[in-house]
Design a protein around this nucleic acid. Structure first.
Length: 464
RNA sequence: GGAGGGGUGGCCGAGCGGCUGAAGGCGGCGGUCUUGAAAACCGCUAGGCGCAAGCCUCAUGGGUUCGAAUCCCAUCCCCUCCGCCA
């Protein structure tokens, strides 16, 4: 969600930024709604102030009435009542009882009016909120302008395209040939775009996930989290998947829960409705989780292999940072993700997405794309973004810059570190041999072997 | 699934229908004292909107009332016990 104050203060700036994102959705209806809403609020405010004042005096009058009796004249300090009731002692009558009666009916009337106004106000507020939730984030000033992916900028490349003395085969052929992918049975179980892994394939999936999490925990200082894979609707709203993209998500109707499309949702919302100490920031979390996506609208794309499927594993990185450091944190987040590809020896490039290719919540995004020798193209294996306060505002995540200071929204960042399924696919293609076998890169071998360093204890101070 | 308890400020926790935006404690901040620190003592310390006056917020919505954190109804959420169970 954008800062409503910004919309009011600099509508032109916002309009322009939204246009650059290719989403010139009318800001103007929102501004109009906002104005109506605020006017109404002011009116209600004033009406309520008057009613409160009257009520308070009436309360005192009631007190006197109980003590003194109904025919007491109105004491001096309650004379303001007469003005509020809209009469003089002569018209209303000089006694306590008569003033109370007149006052009561005035308040009742005003209450009726206010009730109507309040109802309208609530509707306006809701409508405004609905609109605001559908407005995408504004691009950061360092984001290149462009209408679509063709305007993305290659920031750097790492490694080299592997050369083969034979025609490299695509991962789905390799996987089926080795008997480690089973597309048919996956589809039998759950339908198209689901698959199964077998033997070394299943092991490789687990190994890759562990390998990635360990790097981030041990070397990059992230705290591992294990989180629910089903989340409430509000969490999906918090990170921006809802309300606009509900058709992309799997939903459990009986409980109105959603299967997470990415661990970004539970990780980012982990501190929802909290005020954090500045000293704890940045918070860095990593989780390995399955991701569920309906891929609505992707019909016909990437139908072969495991690049576009309804369920895959992903290691996700999330940071909560102060606004002052969030862009530095974004750079280091990208490096954290890159480290995994480097360790695996996979050639990749880093892409800075242009305004038109930016997702809904991010202000700035780098994509990591690894090379597919078989398809002769780069495949996205990670997307690292700074969402600034966009998600924090929705999820209500704040921090206190200094003790006693006013709480501000944190900046939220997220990035894949990495998508496990796609990484496995590209790894198979990279390390394939002429005979259809595949070598396991050295860095991964401790994880594909059984055993490893045993966990001997869990306790305070233990490094997980 | 059955029965019950509960949702109040950064946290814990009180709160006769009006003087309660809310006692008390913890935590935090500032001060006194001290060579310094601790302890002790004193003071300050919810959020939102608004230039301000002021208004809103005691889970959410509705109702009763001149007036609701306090009474009634509905919804959501949390917890406890029992049953079932990886």
């Amino acid at each position: 969600m954008l800062d409503p104050a910004l919309l009011r203060r600099s509508p032109d700036l916002v309009r322009q930024a939204l246009a650059e994102r290719g989403d010139p959705t009318a800001l103007d209806p929102i501004l109009a709604l906002d104005e109506r809403h605020r006017n109404l609020l002011a009116a209600i405010d004033q009406a309520r102030a008057e009613r409160n004042a009257l009520s308070k005096l009436l309360g005192q009058a009631h007190g006197l009435l109980a003590k003194e009796g109904p025919d007491e004249p109105l004491p001096e300090k309650l004379h303001p009542l007469l003005a509020l009731v809209g009469g003089s002692a002569a018209r209303v009558g000089p006694t306590l009882a008569s003033v109370i009666e007149a006052g009561g009916s005035v308040v009742r009337e005003r209450g009726e009016q206010m009730r109507v106004q309040e109802q309208e106000e609530r509707q306006l507020a809701q409508e405004l909120h609905r609109h605001l939730l559908r407005l995408p984030n504004l691009p950061h000033s360092s984001v290149p302008r462009g209408a679509d992916a063709s305007a993305n900028v290659v920031v750097r490349e790492w490694g080299r395209k592997p050369q083969f003395e034979f025609a490299p085969r695509p991962h789905w052929e390799l996987g089926e040939g080795l008997g480690i992918f089973d597309f048919e049975r996956g589809a039998k179980l759950a339908g198209a775009r689901f698959y199964a892994l077998k033997g070394a394939g299943a092991r490789l999936e687990r190994a890759l996930g562990d390998f990635m999490v360990d790097i981030h925990v041990r070397e990059h200082g992230y705290t591992e989290l294990w989180i629910p894979h089903l989340v409430r609707r509000e969490m999906m709203e918090g990170t921006g998947q809802l309300p606009k993209f509900e058709e992309d998500a799997y939903r459990i109707e009986s409980d109105d829960l959603f299967l997470v499309p990415t661990a970004e949702v539970p990780l980012t919302n982990f501190h929802g409705d909290e005020i954090l100490d500045a000293a704890q920031l940045p918070l860095k979390y990593v989780a390995l989780s399955p991701c569920f996506r309906r891929e609505a609208g992707a019909a016909g794309r990437d139908t072969k292999g495991i690049l576009r499927v309804h369920q895959f594993d992903k290691v996700e990185l999330v940071k909560l940072a102060t606004p002052a450091t969030s862009y530095d944190e974004l750079e280091s987040l990208v490096h954290d993700a890159e480290a995994v590809l480097q360790r695996l020896g996979l050639h990749y490039r880093v892409l800075l997405l242009c305004t038109g290719d930016l997702g809904f919540a991010p202000a700035k995004t780098y994509d990591l794309e690894a090379w597919s020798p078989a398809q002769q193209r780069y495949i996205e294996v990670s997307s690292c973004s700074n969402c600034e306060a966009f998600q924090a505002r929705r999820a209500n995540i704040k921090f206190r810059p200094a003790p006693g200071a006013k709480a501000e929204h944190v900046h939220t960042l997220n990035g894949s570190g990495l998508a496990v399924g796609r990484t496995m696919a590209l790894l198979l293609e990279h390390y394939q041999q002429a005979d259809g076998s595949v070598n396991i890169p050295e860095a991964l071998q401790p994880y594909t072997a059984t055993g490893g360093a045993p966990l001997t204890a869990i306790g305070p101070g233990a490094r997980a």
